[in-house]
Design a protein around this nucleic acid. Structure first.
Lengths: 256, 256
DNA sequence: AGCATTGCACGTTGTTGCACGTTTACGTAC
DNA sequence: GTACGTAAACGTGCAACAACGTGCAATGCT
């Protein structure tokens, strides 16, 4: 009879709160505190946690359900939990009022969903699904980069897109990456893509790449073009173990 | 035995007011005060808040709906079957190998889904969800128009977008419409929107508007700007009865 | 020991209803 | 048709209160 022990684990409590949230559409902090027999402070901490992951909308007195975005692509389902974790870490690097370049890619779509609301953020993107993930949410300005959309990538690239990107200066840049060679940097499949990514990196203060471990390769043979330097690399190694690496132009990889 | 308490959170109340507004088209402050068991002052504050976000129009005694706004998902679900039917009729006007301007809007998203595959079509759009509806499907080329995304519209508008649109020549144009005045033509809510729609209409050979019957109004008083002429109007009158109308610059309406 | 979680104390912020003076809508008198 | 009076609705300032975030010490687990 270990179905519902009296002792409720913190992580478990958050899951239960999420269930209630999906059932009722809202939760009241005071009621939750009474139900779980913990202080309202703990409930508030839970709600803050969940909101920072984009799983609910924090409001005065409780929390509301975020209008869930329909899962679009099958590829987005692969490694979904891992990507959400990485996205959460990457989102924590974003500061109030910043301007962000968000490239196309499933990891970056997860990032867009994980971005916190009410932070006065500007999201500049060439990917329709990234745009859809933030349009209409409070505290977001969205700028779309136009151009011919590459169906393999799911976003616009090409000279037209590059020209528009060069008109903008951003604080942070999240390029999608195809492969990471510890010695030679980031790689893409395609020359056009590289030009675009280089443009947004050059137009940004800092660059953050999100990658699942399978992107780390020793020799990037069949990838055509290197991108260049990034300042942070948010990567997952092993189960639940996070490695945030500082990555420089020459390819030095420093774990933190 | 409802476990859900009847406490209403402040922000939740605003959401509920907005829902009611979309259902009834209007709300009365005194009624809301009684319903939510708060003072009329609080209701007034809520309405002022919503109005300042452009979500409703404040009037003496309550508030009215500003149709342009809010839950895009909801608008997509309303009249879904009707819109699908209209979308298929409109899609039948598209010929092999043509270039199409597809504006933002729920009807046009339905159109994008209804467009036939393997026809070598080029879809030029300012709306992320329209782009997503065709990206990756066989026989489609997608060109995204960039710019600042208006969250009420769900697509990019503004001078940046207009400039990009002017670089392109299309065969067909599908502008989103807010209202259709049989005598004076198409109307939008907003000057910026109008400029964009005029630009894509001028850059196209023919123009086709899709509209549900509620868009047909006798006098478009509160809409700021007229768009101009369209050549075809795909509109539904009554249940399942389709009227395809030929519409000219001067406002002559010819049913077919 | 090291770490996560919790409840409490404190100062801060958001929300509410009331009091007050002003504006608006509408019916009535002229 | 215009002028006027009244009551409802309005905005604003204010005080009371609930909820909030943060720092800190106590507790429990590994």
């Amino acid at each position: 009879m270990n179905a519902t022990p009296d002792t409720t684990l913190p992580r478990e409590r958050q899951q239960l709160i999420l269930d209630r949230l999906h059932r009722d559409g809202k939760v009241v902090a005071a009621d939750l505190a009474q139900e779980f027999r913990v202080s309202e402070d703990s409930i508030r901490r839970d709600l803050r946690d969940l909101a920072s992951q984009g799983l609910c909308r924090r409001v005065y007195g409780g929390a509301l359900l975020t209008q869930a975005i329909a899962p679009l692509d099958q590829r987005h389902h692969e490694r979904a939990e891992l990507k959400r974790t990485l996205a959460h870490v990457a989102a924590s690097l974003v500061g109030e009022g910043q301007i962000l370049f968000v490239d196309a890619g499933s990891s970056n779509t997860a990032l867009a969903r994980a971005l916190p609301e009410h932070r006065d953020l500007t999201v500049v993107t060439n990917a329709p699904d990234v745009a859809l993930a933030v349009i209409g949410r409070p505290g977001f300005e969205v700028i779309l980069l136009g151009g011919r959309v590459d169906p393999r990538i799911g976003g616009a690239i090409g000279s037209r897109t590059v020209r528009q990107a060069q008109d903008i200066r951003a604080d942070l840049c999240f390029p999608g990456v195809c492969a990471i060679d510890p010695e030679r940097g980031l790689w893409t499949y395609d020359e056009e893509e590289t030009v675009f990514k280089q443009a947004i990196i050059e137009a940004s203060g800092e660059t953050v790449a999100i990658a699942t471990p399978d992107k780390l390769v020793a020799s990037a043979t069949h990838h055509t073009a290197p991108i260049g330097a990034i300042s942070h690399l948010v990567v997952s190694a092993g189960t639940d173990q996070l490695v945030v690496a500082r990555y420089r132009a020459s390819g030095v990889l420093v774990t933190m």
